[in-house]
Design a protein around this nucleic acid. Structure first.
Lengths: 201, 201, 201, 201
DNA sequence: CATGAATGAGGTTTCATTCAT
DNA sequence: GATGAATGAAACCTCATTCAT
């Protein structure tokens, strides 16, 4: 067996793909270019990956797993709470944790969230939204059960969740450095929290 | 002049283009398909339009003009106000007006706002944001001058403007019928207004 | 009759064509561009000119007539001479006269001589050569008749004529200003004259 | 590997390309025609060659290498000489050698020298000129150093080099058979040599 | 594991020309 | 004299994918 270069083919392919996808987005990325950059023939690519979409998913697999990890961690902790959190420190901490993960691979996540059209992940944002949404929904239900009164509709919760996810896309788009993004968090959280409160009035 | 079929060639071209762009987005739309659908040779297309991008702009021209119209109307009226608006009725009315225009050509606007990558309009959302932003910024400045105190930073205003524009994209994406979108407006406005208030506290 | 702009259509067309042909050469010149520049529709062009080639000939007509004029003038005068001209002054004067005409419309002639492929004038150089050739041939014949001996073959005369024509193309290509081209003439003539003499030895 | 027809696809492509380029010149040659003639899809062509220009270079590669070979051989030998060569036999031999190489692929070289506009080789004539020029220049310098006197200017040397290269284009254009071209060499060399001598007088 | 070859359809754009009005 | 519309063919190039070896 002849090792091409020093790393194994699959890894080189993955790295070249990452670069290409980041640079051009899913649709415009060219498998040819990827293979050329990885110094591999197209045949080889198709040995490892079913098709372009499969390759894309493989590229995103690990980073995505890590991301799901933080999200779950921070969106489960508050679940027991039966009162409106009296401060925003918790939210800020959660946002910071997520931002940290996102910015470790900023280019990659930014691409996934904004240039994945055509791939199976093109609607991944919706998955995050669904996740956040179920969290907020159960939170609202609990609160309303205690208060004995309905405050917020399902639709507004969907919007808020959507909005919250967009915050992260926004931070990725508008800030190049993690620290700057983190500095921007408090006011945004303050804004969103204000919105929340308004609903329970 | 040879009349091909019953309608103006240019018009048929425009309609076929609209359909194709809506269905596939700017990048994936095929001029060949458009011409075939319009029963015209590609040469004819290039008689009327400089290139793909030009055709796209022509498709969007009128709808866009109307949209800019409502936006300007409703984002200039409040300009004189020197106090925080005491209710949200104005905002709701403005949003409704915009939503009405958007939903008259829902598919088209949705496409423009989410699938225009590659065209000259790919960043049009930013233009709307800039518009809204300058509005809010002058509003905040006026208020702060009176209060003699700075409340909100430029960055948060940018976020809010961005968020506000996203509201409309959100409505287009999540509701098929204008009336449903309009029903959803009040809670969202209430949410955003709550956010605003939080900043001036 | 509505005058389009201030000059008549045909003239504007001619001028636009001249510019386009100069810039791109015959083949790459675009009738579309020419018409656009002349602010005229393609139909109009085809009213005045049969086709692209016809337009090209019309563009070159006058300049070409002037050029033929000088050439004839200077290549007929020596015809009576029965001896080898003992100096090169005559040749230099002739060359200067031709260069002057060429440089009055340098770009145009340069284009005609180097970028007319595809047009009817693509072999015009050969016509000049034929002209010069008949001149030199009769000169050589007369001389040989007197000397009673054959010195030069027909083929070398063809070469020399060809070479002489190329001198002018060379000057057009290598010098931008008439005066510089004229300064370069003497050594070249001296070189060519030296070549001539060598044949009669 | 699927053998299409009996020969290597790449070879068939190369031969079809050669024919097409010779017939139509670089610019007017059609990749479609080439592929059709080679019984191959356009995709296949682009597997082997980057683009039209690359294909063209590949077609010219070998012949060009051989040509450069003879040129170098014959233009380096005289380099040591410090006196004007007392005969023209050397020059004639050199010219013959070059002509032989050129006529082995007459059509091809003729095309390259006269119809390569648009390709990377469109200015190859200038490269030959530069080659010859540096040769003559060093020759003249050496001679003038010994004579202690300047005879020829840089510009006339450029002209002569240019002229010398044109001799070969001329022979390709005017003679179909190698032997006829070779027969024409002596008088031309004699003519050029005469020109040279005239400069050192 | 991987190569190298090939497909075939598709992409956008440009062109000279024609012709009814 | 001139317009404006339309043709139809052709241009170069790129793509994801397949498959025998």
């Amino acid at each position: 067996m002849v090792m091409n270069e020093d790393k194994d083919t699959k890894l080189r392919l993955l790295e070249s793909a990452r670069k290409e996808f980041i640079e051009k987005g899913y649709n415009k990325a060219s498998l040819r270019s990827i293979c050329a950059d990885a110094k591999v023939t197209t045949g080889a690519l198709y040995f490892f990956y079913k098709d372009k979409d499969d390759l894309f998913e493989e590229v995103m697999k690990e980073p995505l797993a890590e991301l799901y990890g933080v999200i779950k961690t921070h969106f489960i902790s508050e679940n027991e709470s039966t009162e409106l959190p009296d401060g925003m420190e918790g939210d800020i901490k959660a946002a910071e944790a997520i931002v940290k993960v996102l910015f470790k691979k900023r280019d990659l996540f930014l691409m996934m969230l904004t240039k994945a059209q055509g791939s199976k992940l093109e609607n991944i944002r919706d998955e995050f939204v669904a996740f956040v949404e179920s969290h907020y929904r159960s939170f609202a239900y609990q609160f309303e059960k205690i208060a004995g009164k309905k405050f917020v509709g399902d639709e507004i919760i969907h919007w808020i969740s959507h909005d919250e996810v967009d915050v992260f896309v926004y931070l990725l788009e508008h800030y190049e450095k993690e620290e700057d993004a983190i500095k921007a968090i408090p006011s945004i959280v303050s804004f969103l929290t204000g919105g929340w409160y308004a609903l329970f009035r």
